[in-house]
Amino acid sequence: MTSTQPTAPAPHYLSLPDARTVTTQAVRAAAHALDKVLREQSMMCLTADPGVGKTFTLHTLCEQRPTLPALRLLQRPQARPDDLRHSLHHALNLPGDPPQDAGICDDYLRHALAHTPRLLAVDEAHQLSTSCIEYLRYLHDDPTPQVTILLLASRPRLKALRSQPTLLSRVTTWHHMEPLDPDEVLTVLPAFHPLWHNTPNRTLTHLDEMWAHGNLRRWAALTHQLQAHRRRHPDHPPDPDALLRRLHHRLALTT
């Protein structure tokens, strides 16, 4: 059983009109894992293959917990600790510019983080430098800030995080998100977008086997192609194989 929201609060890939947020099995499993680490105020790493929906799941989980103050950071590759400090300063809406002195900036951040338990979520965490990971360790180990740290990482890049002894001894939950299984595709896609409402199950299965493989980003791309076809040919139902050929052609041009 899946649940939906009529208006998606989280941004869908390609900004699909009329797309809905669907609480899939993977999202529910991630929510259960997150609630556990929130109670412990510990560290968690959420991983998935590209396109399965790590970032979208983060947005969804935060929207489902409106009373949870969440700080969401996306750092550039090989960012420095000062970059993290400045991002946190802005995410906390602290007045003025971040102090240039690292010690003073840390005091401001520790004071701001001391009053309310918060979720600190860092997307693309596999790109963090060792010094930034050490800074997250500092925030985690300091008894003053009340933060739960959630790291989002691509599964193919997970080795970069697991090679950090600092994280191995502190991350209490390594949670991997799986793509949609074939049976779930048949319920999720009609809930995800009205264009799939009356699509026969055999067509959804065919498209998933040949193209999407349970990957939500690929399903979004397929939905985008279906919308374009409907605009150009409103009186002609799309041929699934033609859509697949168009997608495979576009993929070949970008690789």
Results as ranks from 00 to 15, higher is better:
Met1Gln: 08
Ala8Val: 09
Pro9Asp: 09
Ala10Val: 14
Ala10Thr: 05
Tyr13Phe: 14
Pro17Leu: 09
Asp18Pro: 04
Ala30Asp: 05
Ala31Gly: 13
Ala33Phe: 09
Leu34Thr: 08
Leu38Lys: 02
Met43Pro: 11
Ala48Asp: 10
Asp49Tyr: 02
Pro50Lys: 03
Gly51Thr: 07
Gly53Arg: 04
Lys54Asp: 07
Phe56Met: 13
Thr60Trp: 08
Leu71Val: 15
Leu71Ile: 15
Pro81Met: 12
Leu84Lys: 00
His90Cys: 00
His90Lys: 09
His90Arg: 14
Pro98Asp: 11
Asp107Arg: 14
Ala112Thr: 07
Thr116Ala: 03
Thr116Met: 08
Pro117Ser: 02
Pro117Arg: 04
Leu119Pro: 02
Leu119Ile: 05
Gln127Leu: 13
Glu134Phe: 10
Leu136Met: 12
Tyr138His: 15
Tyr138Ile: 15
Pro143Gly: 11
Pro143Tyr: 06
Thr144Gln: 15
Val147Thr: 06
Ile149Gln: 03
Leu150Trp: 00
Leu152His: 04
Lys159Val: 08
Leu161Pro: 05
Arg162Asn: 02
Pro165Asp: 01
Thr166Gln: 15
Thr166Tyr: 08
Val171Ser: 02
Thr172Ala: 11
Thr173Leu: 08
Thr173Trp: 05
Trp174Asp: 04
Trp174Phe: 05
Pro182Leu: 05
Phe192Tyr: 09
His193Tyr: 02
His193Glu: 03
Leu195Phe: 02
His197Leu: 08
Asn201Ile: 00
Thr203Gln: 04
Thr203Tyr: 01
Leu204Trp: 05
Thr205Pro: 00
Asp208Cys: 10
Glu209Phe: 01
Leu216Ile: 14
Arg217Val: 09
Ala221Tyr: 10
Leu222Arg: 09
Leu222Tyr: 10
Gln225Ala: 03
Gln225Asn: 01
Arg231Leu: 14
Arg231His: 13
Arg232Ser: 07
Pro234Ala: 10
Pro237Cys: 11
Asp239Thr: 12
Leu244Gln: 14
Leu244Asn: 12
Thr255Arg: 14
Thr255His: 15
